[in-house]
């Protein structure tokens, strides 16, 4: 559906995007994952035609995006990071206004607005001013405003920032519905849970460069272990022979810190009883044990040595 080839954008000496390339097929949901300042918004801005790249090109359905008035922009719906609504207009008037920007005639615009309000669950608030909406409702309307012209591609630039969990779930339900309807989604976030829930494929970006581009399974394969077994020992000094533990067949990695073992394993079901029995056999008593699945945070940490949010 779209191809991003070598997009580069510089601001003085700062390279915001450095040869960013990835592509998406129709109906595919791509997660653009990276910490704050990684270049996600700059990349989205170039794809949406808001920002002229210093190098590289954006192909929408095989056609390069050229200029402000390129009709191909009608294939794109942009959900901005900031709320992009007119606070003193009603929800319906906002949607009719945005529909007119895409040259929708009045009857078509009204139908599209009604559909979009239905989708995001705001039909009963159509006549209310946006100013009176909660943050979550504004976010939902912000999404609705990008759907009016029925774009095939939705660019979602951190669309649920600062939203309560209930509204976040509602928006995710909306996005999953849109995905089922065949929309191609590009979802930028620095929250791995969001990308994991929605995306078929994840592009990880850092310092303006793409450092990974794969399916979730493919990214997890980059990790030495797909699961973590955390065991808190009664003996916090822990005189565990880590080398011997590491040599056990199901164990991939071993760390010990603050009286707890973090053991990376591939097959959690097989490894857990095996490791616990080994500890008992070697005289180590444990308080409790928990298991964790390796996630994109772990992938990012593995690839960059930093966490996504600690920037």
């Amino acid at each position: 559906m779209y191809d991003i080839n070598g997009l580069t954008k510089r601001y003085g000496n700062v390279v915001a995007a450095d040869g960013v390339s990835f592509r998406a097929d129709e109906g595919e949901a791509i997660g653009l994952l990276g910490p704050n300042g990684a270049g996600k918004t700059t990349t989205v801005s170039m794809i949406a035609g808001l920002l002229r790249p210093d190098a590289g090109e954006v192909l929408i359905a095989g056609r390069p995006l050229c200029g402000d008035t390129d009709p191909i922009k009608r294939e794109i719906g942009l959900v901005t990071q900031d709320i992009a609504l007119v606070a003193d207009l009603s929800a319906l008037d906002n949607l009719l206004f945005f529909a007119a920007l895409y040259d929708l005639d009045r009857p078509t615009a009204r139908r599209a607005a009604a559909d979009a309000l239905d989708l995001v669950g705001l039909a009963d608030r159509a006549r209310h001013k946006v100013r009176t909406f909660s943050g979550g409702m504004k976010r939902r309307l912000n999404l609705a405003a990008a759907l009016l012209h029925d774009p095939r591609i939705l660019l979602l630039d951190e669309p649920i920032v600062g939203v309560d969990p209930q509204s976040r779930n509602a928006i995710f339900d909306n996005l999953e519905t849109l995905k089922r309807r065949g929309k191609t989604l590009l979802y930028t976030t620095h929250y791995m849970e969001e990308a994991e829930r929605l995306c078929d494929r994840v592009v990880i970006i850092d310092h303006g460069k793409v450092i990974a581009d794969d399916t979730l399974q493919g990214l997890y394969r980059l990790l030495p272990a797909s699961n973590l077994l955390s065991i808190e020992l009664e003996d916090r000094e822990g005189r565990v022979d880590l080398e011997q533990l590491r040599a056990l067949p199901p164990v991939k990695t071993v760390e010990f810190a603050n009286g707890a073992l973090r053991i990376g394993v591939s097959d959690l079901a097989a490894a857990t009883p095996f490791v616990l029995q080994w500890l008992v056999d070697h005289g180590h008593r444990y308080r409790h044990a928990v298991t964790e699945r390796a996630d994109l945070e772990t992938v990012f940490l593995s690839l960059t040595g930093r966490t996504l949010r600690d920037r």
């Binding site: 808001l50 008035t69 009709p71 922009k73 009608r74 992009a84 609504l85 920007l101 405003a145």
Partner: peptide
């Protein structure tokens, strides 16, 4: 500085 301008610019409208 706000999102509305980005949305306006995303539409196929001339300057």
């Amino acid at each position: 500085r706000d999102g509305l301008w980005r949305r306006l610019r995303a539409a196929p409208l001339s300057r």
